[in-house]
Nucleic acid binder design. Structure first.
Lengths: 128, 128
DNA sequence: GCATATAGTATCCAAAATGATACTAATGGA
DNA sequence: TCCATTAGTATCATTTTGGATACTATATGC
């Protein structure tokens, strides 16, 4: 999504601005996983099997410059880098949970490859 | 943002899926404005001064196919088309409000051109 | 001496999103 | 007769995103 520097909105501007921070391809996911606690680079990579290193680095750096994520480097070999949410990032928790809840209630679950509930059918397909 | 068809996430998937629905460049804004009620095409265009017709049509159509927005065409001349939220769309209200509140509290207000509160300075700039 | 692991970079390319601009139809009013 | 209005389309160019691939450093274990 292209950034817009001058928000030409009068009313909904903060909505767009917030959406821009968390709207990268993997950012929602990353934030969501980091909500569970500090994670190393490779741990995150394992959680997102299809992400490339480039994108993982990239998205994490963007989250870092947005002040949402803290990056802690340990001078060891092999290197160790731990990522965690800042206070700022943790304050997104209600939003992330709202997104998750809405998605679970309103989107067809079948798009997700695996999930615990596969027999129960109380989920609404989009048209409903 | 590129769509991903097969959500490779096990846990945060609904977060990403929901984000995809509302993550278009103007979608957050459009949904936010439609929360206030039914709007005609040109009314929306006036609310988003920098949007092009192409993008407005485009984003509205996408919201429509996502089942979030209803498009009512009146066979008049000149044409009249009214856009409103579906139930599905209205159910996003908590999310949109959460995004707005978070943005107001955590983002530097100065990026926004105009807004009512310009004297009070209780907003935190990003670094805080 | 060599492979392994970690957390990256660098480069190039493809695809998707967005923007600019010009065009349309039908009717009412000046 | 001509212009304005509405809600679009069509076409093209540009920008932004995302993906593939190959490359790096260095201590450790074998």
């Amino acid at each position: 999504m292209a950034k817009h520097e001058s928000y030409d909105c009068v009313a909904g501007c903060p909505v767009e601005a917030t959406l821009e921070l968390i709207g990268g391809k993997w950012k929602g996911l990353l934030l969501y996983h980091l909500l569970e606690g500090t994670q190393r680079f490779n741990a995150l990579k394992r959680m997102l099997p299809n992400i490339t290193q480039r994108m993982l680095t990239n998205q994490l750096r963007e989250l870092e410059s947005a002040g949402l994520v803290h990056r802690q480097v340990y001078a060891e070999v092999p290197p160790r880098v731990e990522y965690s949410l800042t206070e700022h990032g943790r304050s997104l928790a209600p939003i992330l949970n709202a997104l998750k809840t809405w998605g679970e209630q309103h989107l067809d679950r079948s798009t997700c490859s695996q999930d615990s509930a596969s027999g129960t059918a109380e989920q609404a397909s989009i048209g409903a």
